[in-house]
Design a protein around this nucleic acid. Structure first.
Lengths: 244, 244
DNA sequence: CTCCAAAAGAAACACTGTCCACTTACAGAG
DNA sequence: CTCTGTAAGTGGACAGTGTTTCTTTTGGAG
């Protein structure tokens, strides 16, 4: 079992090629992915595809997994390339990372952030990849809170029930707990959710054409709206370089 | 031509029944609407349906039009039931109107705010119904600006190009122009777009299941996030009643 | 070399949207 | 009233789909 057999390797290769072809079809044809068409392009008979994916939905699921991973990779790479002190720049980079991947892969983006597919229920192992961007974003607002940055708006008190929801979420998540007491971590998460919603709202509107005939300067508009949210959350540049 | 002929009346009736059946199918089956299944339920042979809708996409378009109208009706009715002085309550009512309709009609909501259908391009006569909610929302922030309400955050200057976009939009829109000079109407529109994006971002996340296992107290969470945006925009209750 | 299991193929089934030729039924003209 | 043109509805076909079953080929292990 040390080295995978030739059969196993060529099998993995074929599966990978099928995924690639399916992604190409998705990009050109749109959401209606035809199993038979990708089989044709793969030089296979339709039923042969069932040796690799038990159903069309399974192939779709594989593409969804890949899409989540690729989106998160784009977003996290952009965010990681920025000095960690500069909270505002980290949020901006993360946002642009999400947006640019989405614009480059609109069909795949629609697959993960568009209408849920009818009978499809996300397998439990998908919640990780699916929430990577949100987790990274929450990490930024947590860092900000840890550094004493405060929202520019007086923090609106959370409804008690929702605060309990968010606290439960915090307790369930791994990693060290926040060390500060003020503001309450729940309200920091709530602000993170605000940014998260706005970020994907902006991207979804742009990718799905809701800005057509309204906004021509897409990138400027996006950046402006993101910066407004950074203002709202009180995300600010860190101390001048050479301070630590 | 004064009174429609019997043939015309029964024809309109049949078309309406087809739409109703299609909506029922949409609600139960999800997005994959089968023309043949609709025809079966209507007691018709599949090809007979083509006397009423030239294609499946045309039927879909009819449903989309209805959905836009119904959503706008729900939102505007809720908004209109609130004293016009109370900008915050108007925004809150509009938001709840959008949310409750979306939750009651998730499949129809997905049709209009989910992934765009592959080959489909919205006909020009759809831009009106499609933007009714946004127009109403912009109306609220305009009213607020006219009454001297200001965002709680210092207004971030718009990028010049985007400001031009928004000004063009304002010039193109009918109705009286805003009478105040400060803040610039463009930045008021920009704030309206912020609220618009957040509103539909919140609703879409909830309807599409992105809040599953995260937030149980959906309504409280939604209202909190909406109120945060009202805070941001500086929407406030009007003067005490009996002031005008 | 033999044998077995994996991979690929062939064919069928039940669907789908769409088109075409044909029949039926009705509204209006003479 | 009859005649006629048009609209509505029927039946059948076509190409395409996802999926299953059975069969054939083929590659690797003993």
């Amino acid at each position: 079992m040390s080295v995978p057999s030739l059969r196993a390797r060529v099998r993995a290769e074929t599966a990978e090629e099928i995924r690639a072809i399916a992604k190409r079809h998705l990009a050109t044809e749109g959401a209606n992915l035809s199993l038979r068409a990708v089989a044709r392009d793969a030089g296979l008979v339709p039923s042969a595809l069932y040796r690799y994916f038990p159903s069309r939905d399974a192939l779709l699921t594989a593409l969804i997994t890949d899409a989540y991973a690729a989106l998160a990779a784009s977003a996290k790479a952009a965010e990681a390339a920025v000095p960690r002190d500069d909270l505002r720049a980290r949020f901006l980079a993360l946002s642009h990372g999400v947006r640019s991947w989405a614009l480059d892969h609109p069909a795949e983006y629609a697959l993960i952030y568009g209408s849920p597919v009818p009978g499809y229920a996300a397998p439990p192992e998908m919640v990780g990849p699916a929430s990577e961007v949100a987790v990274t974003l929450i990490g930024i607002v947590f860092d900000a809170a840890g550094r004493g940055l405060r929202p520019t708006i007086p923090t609106r008190p959370l409804p008690a029930a929702t605060a309990a929801d968010l606290r439960r979420l915090l307790d369930k998540s791994p990693g060290p707990k926040p060390a500060w007491a003020e503001p309450a971590p729940e309200s920091v998460i709530a602000i993170g959710f605000t940014l998260w919603t706005q970020l994907f709202g902006l991207v979804t509107f742009e990718v799905f054409g809701r800005l057509d005939d309204l906004i021509d300067t897409r990138r400027e508009y996006f950046e402006h709206q993101i910066l407004v949210m950074a203002d709202l959350a009180g995300l600010d540049a860190g101390p001048a370089p050479g301070d630590g």
